[in-house]
């Protein structure tokens, strides 16, 4: 598994967010994207996830398969995608069913295991509205553990998390890399796991 972006440029609202960008990640490698706010970190992640059209350049995945790139990626943006009136367990069960690919439909046991892994077992049946920001963030990240997708696109996963929770997330990320996964993470903090770096400066104006 390898993902390669070449001469990438994306526009949003007529403004060139970044241009002529390239990177290559093989199985087990991670890329840390840094840069000031508005430099396009989130935009890059969304572009790789296939949520945004590319102005120029291309993103290729080898070995090429007929599955859409989006179906190979997990995307955890700033929004937690949690419905306040549903419980953490119901939210995760839905997201797992939505994002499961092919025959691998996760069972309820996988959902509970994921919640357990993120330390949310005690609050699994409480409405998401009652959870703290940190718990909501962990509930959002729990889908990484519940459903397997090779490429993870994480937009500042560690914000709003206390140190012990951050340790859990970093553990999960390390395990994913060890299993041959690929991670692109936008963050300001240094990461203990070995990553290539990609600094997005202020894009030169159009």
């Amino acid at each position: 598994m390898q993902i390669e972006a070449s001469a990438l440029s994306v526009e949003r609202g007529g403004r060139v967010v970044f241009a002529d960008l390239g990177f290559r990640l093989k199985a087990g490698e991670a890329l840390r994207v840094t840069g000031p706010n508005g430099a396009g970190k989130s935009t890059l992640l969304k572009a790789v996830a296939g949520l945004l059209p590319l102005a120029a350049g291309k993103i290729e995945i080898a070995p090429s398969c007929d599955v859409r790139r989006a179906e190979l990626c997990h995307y955890v943006g700033h929004a937690d995608a949690l419905k306040p009136s549903l419980t953490a367990c119901e939210n995760l069960a839905f997201l797992a069913a939505l994002l499961a690919t092919g025959a691998a439909r996760p069972g309820a046991a996988a959902i509970e295991a994921a919640l357990q892994r993120l330390g949310l077992a005690a609050v699994a049946d409480l409405p998401a509205a009652y959870l703290s920001a940190g718990q909501k963030r962990r509930a959002a990240l729990a889908r990484l553990a519940a459903v397997f997708r090779p490429i993870w696109l994480l937009d500042e996963p560690l914000t709003a998390l206390d140190p012990p929770s951050q340790a859990v997330i970093l553990e999960i990320m390390a395990a994913h890399l060890a299993a041959g996964g690929i991670i692109i993470v936008a963050t300001h903090t240094a990461l203990p796991i070995g990553t290539a770096d990609l600094a997005l400066g202020r894009a030169s104006g159009p």
Partner: peptide
């Protein structure tokens, strides 16, 4: 949801269940 290991409904089934529940 406390089913014993039975796989979750398909994405569409889960979506319908979710929207009805939220409503």
């Amino acid at each position: 949801m406390k089913q014993s290991g039975v796989p979750l409904p398909s994405a569409l089934g889960a979506l319908l269940l979710r929207d009805l529940r939220i409503g």
